[in-house]
Design a binder for these strands. Structure first.
Lengths: 142, 142
DNA sequence: GACTTAAATGCAAATGATTTGCATTTAGAT
DNA sequence: ATCTAAATGCAAATCATTTGCATTTAAGTC
């Protein structure tokens, strides 16, 4: 996951210098399988026999620090995360105001952190581009 | 506030077809005075004799529907709002990961909803560009 | 392979933001 | 001045997230 690393949970953990526990492997496997931005409740539901919620949160925080994950966006009080690896380049997200689902959009060429600099004095570590509106399904229902 | 409206709370409420109540006037006045993106707790603290929290939330939801306000961003479980009027054009925001403060950045020419279109099928009603990192104050302390 | 210990986990309780139910008050029309 | 739907305050509920603490376990070390 880290920029160059593999996507094998065990390896990812070892490379990040983290203890390899059943819970961490299971959570990472679920995240890799999920393939899109997820909230803690998303990933819990996607797992059979998920670890305790506190454990999931603690591990997600750890994965964020280790750059195994990054925050995709926060909306309506919930944070969504996604894998932070070369196989998953940064891209904008879309939040459907009707069903609340979060979609990953295609990367937009030419729109990078570098091309959208804010004023001086700020040290930018991340940029997020977020759209709101109606997803295709909800849009066609209207 | 609505695209063309005035910034006088009473007038804003009337134009939006909302009942004019003391609480609504007070909240709007505080928001106009505040001049930047605010959370509910920000605006409560900025008021003397603020209405009940539930009332503030209910009114903010209403102001969002009426386009008197828009959501600036959500982070760490808190939503930030700002005036949605011609005097306050859309602009990117910056969240300081050290102190948690939210900053309004200057508008970036050429970067508009129009110039950053997501794939087909989506109906885009809003776009937010958000930066994270260290604000000038926290950055210089490091 | 058993031993040791710091780190990880589960569970329960705390926190903080936001929402809701309901009895009371009030803006705005009559 | 009167009436009624809508707005408010207050308390309690909800939801996401965090924390304290006793118990378990990964990963050396012998």
């Amino acid at each position: 996951m880290s920029s160059e690393g593999s996507c094998v949970p065990r390896t990812v953990l070892t490379e990040a210098g983290l203890k390899v526990t059943r819970q961490r492997i299971d959570v990472l496997e679920a995240i890799v399988r999920y393939r899109k931005a997820f909230s803690v409740s998303d990933i819990k539901q996607a797992m059979t026999g998920a670890p305790d919620t506190a454990t999931i949160y603690r591990n997600i925080m750890l994965f964020l620090e280790k750059k195994i994950l990054r925050t995709a966006l926060s909306c309506n009080g919930t944070s969504f995360y996604e894998l932070d690896c070369s196989h998953n380049p940064r891209h904008p997200h879309f939040v459907c105001e009707m069903c609340g689902r979060v979609f990953c959009l295609k990367h937009i060429d030419g729109v990078e952190e570098q091309s959208l600099l804010p004023e001086r004095g700020f040290r930018v570590t991340a940029m997020q581009l977020e759209y709101r509106g109606l997803c295709p399904a909800c849009n066609s229902k209207k």
